[in-house]
């Protein structure tokens, strides 16, 4: 009985998702316009696309799941670039998974802090806050 109660809405939900996402391209979240004309940002983002592929694949999957099930309904609301979920994915490419989780929670704290807007560079009304800015600790301890 309980199973039937949850199964029907779940099937409907999945069908809606699948039919809506037939091309498997997200409705929103194309960020190229933000980085096209900004070499600083481009180089930062390129430098972050490093190794650690296994971890980043797992986090990519998690974030993809989050984007399809929550973010697309909730909308493109994050006031930062990269958004918090992208921050986490990019962070796993630079740091270990544990560090990335810590940095992600730290980012959520900054996101919640409505008084911190003055200290960020603004691009298209979003605050530029890449994970590479928060990776000194690991870099310095590796040297």
């Amino acid at each position: 009985m309980i199973r039937n109660k949850f199964l029907f809405p779940l099937v409907i939900f999945c069908l809606v998702q699948i039919s809506a996402q037939t091309d498997w391209v997200r409705w929103e979240g194309v960020n190229n316009y933000l980085i096209e004309n900004n070499n600083d940002i481009k180089s930062n983002e390129l430098s972050s696309s490093l190794n650690n592929t296994r971890i980043s694949n797992i986090s990519d999957l998690l974030v993809k799941f989050y984007k399809i099930t929550i973010s697309d309904f909730d909308g493109d609301n994050c006031r930062f670039h990269p958004s918090c979920s992208e921050f986490f994915v990019e962070s796993t490419r630079i740091n270990s998974l544990f560090t990335s989780v810590l940095l992600f929670f730290d980012r959520l704290t900054r996101d919640t802090n409505i008084f911190s807007s003055g200290r960020y560079k603004t691009i298209n009304n979003r605050f530029y806050d890449p994970p590479s800015d928060y990776s000194y600790y690991e870099k310095e301890s590796n040297q």
């Binding site: 810590l102 940095l103 704290t109 600790y137």
Partner: peptide
């Protein structure tokens, strides 16, 4: 727990920054 540990790590990074 995440916010607490994130706060510790974030503070260290904040000092470096």
């Amino acid at each position: 727990t995440g916010f607490y540990l994130g706060n510790i790590y974030g503070s260290i990074i904040s000092a470096y920054r």
